[in-house]
Design a protein around this nucleic acid. Structure first.
Length: 457
RNA sequence: GUGGUUGUAGCUCAGUUGGUUAGAGCGCCUGAUUGUGGUUCAGGAGGUCGUCGGUUCGAGACCGAUCUUCCACCCCA
């Protein structure tokens, strides 16, 4: 074959079956979002660069897809700047727009921009693709969908409680049982950083702590030391490294460590509030688990932090995440609007459901009846029947050409169409339909009413 | 962004130390079967070996670059 066309790395095409399966996940999530009182919005695929840049840290900035300006953009660049060959500086001069990196920041922009039309607290959901210039891996793409639900304009911890319930409802709805909703609180992390004398190194500290179950205690300590966290501080947080047991037991240990930190204690209070409410309300299939090592890179979180892990039998990064951000809209000039939200990673959920074979067999919305084409006279009669079938919601189609019977049957077979109807000269005269069941091979002569009845089942 | 890995027919993969015309299974098309798919039998199509360049009398195989795949970092859904 000549030069095969291709798509950029980290992107994918979806065939009809895959789309049906993705649609199934979307529908489940959307339905739960709506029963929890969220309303949909959509925002553009690309935003002004200044809306996105600097909101996700240096690493995030690197991963944002920048859109080149139109026209003769190089002409407008200062010669000296061009000669410098500093990509970061040059970028801002030749790119004014960028593809959205997540749905939270565009949402914050939306809230600020439409603050006078919005009734607070505002509960919105959004299911759209986002783009990251990352190196692809399993479950990591450069174009993928996020499904976000956020509430802004309420400090109430009941929102956090609701989101835990929402996670549980969605994964239960998807028959994905045994997911773990990990929870932590940024205030606890800041509290610890304060207690160990590394208040100014919060990010370094959390990033290192986050790796505990991956690289082990010793390596984490090494990394912390190398980032300049004082040794006596690391000694102080020693109990953290072996933290386990029930929610209550872990809270007790944290209480000890954080006894001198006002912020830390506040974090513990919040966690206790959420946990006791969840214990009271109960979860259907998910488990809520305190995980002090849970950090999440995004630096705008200020309170609760969530992350959802797939059942342990599947190797997959987190399939959802979120948290409380007290001042996200502040970066766009709207102060004192607290928000909290969660996100579902559609593409990863897809991979998990596929691996565990949890998609229902019925997701494929297939044609239910194929009418064999014997020629123009017969075809017209068929289309009259098809019209009536479609009117009552039966997916039906006529084979477009009067091709060989074998070919037409084969088509029905390949597309796994369950019923085939044959209307030839003979059937037209007797006003009957020959109905063939493709799974059993059984063939009967029926009236239209009987045909409708069989096919509708 | 760093390090590694992968690419041969539509799919899954063989292909010896570099040596005639690059193979298999499955799939696809045609016929046996002009009103009957799945099974069977017979036949057939389909590849500039990811791309570009180099070494060699000769490259699918060796070397380089590039793209792609997957993986580990980084980071993250």
């Amino acid at each position: 074959m000549a030069q095969k066309p291709s798509i950029p790395k980290g992107t994918r095409d979806f065939n009809p079956e895959q789309v049906a399966k993705r649609q199934y996940i979307f529908n489940t999530i959307q339905q739960v979002f709506e029963t929890f009182g969220f309303q949909p919005i959509e925002t553009p695929s690309f935003e002004n660069s200044e809306t996105l840049m600097g909101k996700y840290g240096d690493e995030g900035d690197r991963l944002i897809f920048k859109i080149l300006n139109s026209g003769d953009f190089l002409n407008k660049v200062d010669d000296a700047l061009y000669a410098e060959k500093d990509a970061a500086k040059l970028t801002s001069n030749i790119s004014e727009k960028a593809l959205r990196y997540d749905l939270t920041v565009p949402f914050a922009r939306y809230v600020v921009q439409h603050q006078n039309e919005i009734e607070f607290p505002f509960k919105r959901y959004q299911m759209q693709p986002v783009w990251r210039a990352d190196r692809p891996q399993k479950g990591r793409f450069r174009e993928f969908y996020q499904c976000d639900a956020d509430v802004v304009g309420s400090n109430s911890l009941w929102q956090e409680v609701e989101f835990v319930q929402l996670y549980d409802a969605v994964f239960t709805g998807l028959k994905l049982e045994g997911v773990t909703i990990k929870i932590n609180n940024r205030k606890i992390l800041s509290g610890i950083a304060e207690v160990i004398g590394a208040k100014d190194k919060l990010i370094d500290f959390t990033v290192a702590l986050d790796k505990l179950d991956k690289i082990g205690e010793e390596k984490v300590k090494e990394e912390m030391l190398s980032k300049g966290i004082p040794e006596e501080g690391i000694v102080k947080m020693q109990p953290l490294f072996s933290l386990s047991g029930t929610f209550e037991a872990q809270i007790a240990v944290l209480g000890d460590i954080l006894s001198t930190s006002k912020e830390g204690k506040k974090g513990i209070e919040e966690l206790e509030f959420i946990n006791s409410a969840i214990v009271e309300l109960g979860l259907k299939t998910a488990t809520l688990q305190l995980d002090v090592t849970l950090a999440r890179g995004l630096n705008y979180y200020t309170g609760a932090i969530f992350e959802v892990a797939a059942p342990k039998t599947v190797q997959m990064g987190s399939i959802g995440g979120g948290g409380r951000y007290d001042d996200l809209t502040g970066i766009f000039g709207l102060k004192d609007v607290s928000g909290v939200g969660i996100s579902f990673g559609l593409d990863r959920i897809y991979l998990v459901l596929e691996e565990l074979q949890l998609f229902p067999v019925t997701v494929n919305k297939n044609v239910e009846v194929l009418f064999i084409n014997f020629g123009n006279t017969e075809a017209l009669g068929c289309l009259q029947a098809i019209k009536k079938l479609r009117a009552v919601g039966v997916n039906a189609e006529l084979y477009p050409d009067a091709a060989k019977m074998k070919k037409q049957m084969n088509y029905a077979n390949k597309r796994t169409i369950p019923f085939v109807v044959l209307v030839g000269e003979e059937e037209i005269q007797s006003e009957m339909f020959t109905l063939k069941n493709m799974t059993s091979g059984e063939q009967t002569k029926v009236t239209f009413q009987e045909l409708l009845k069989t096919v509708k089942q």
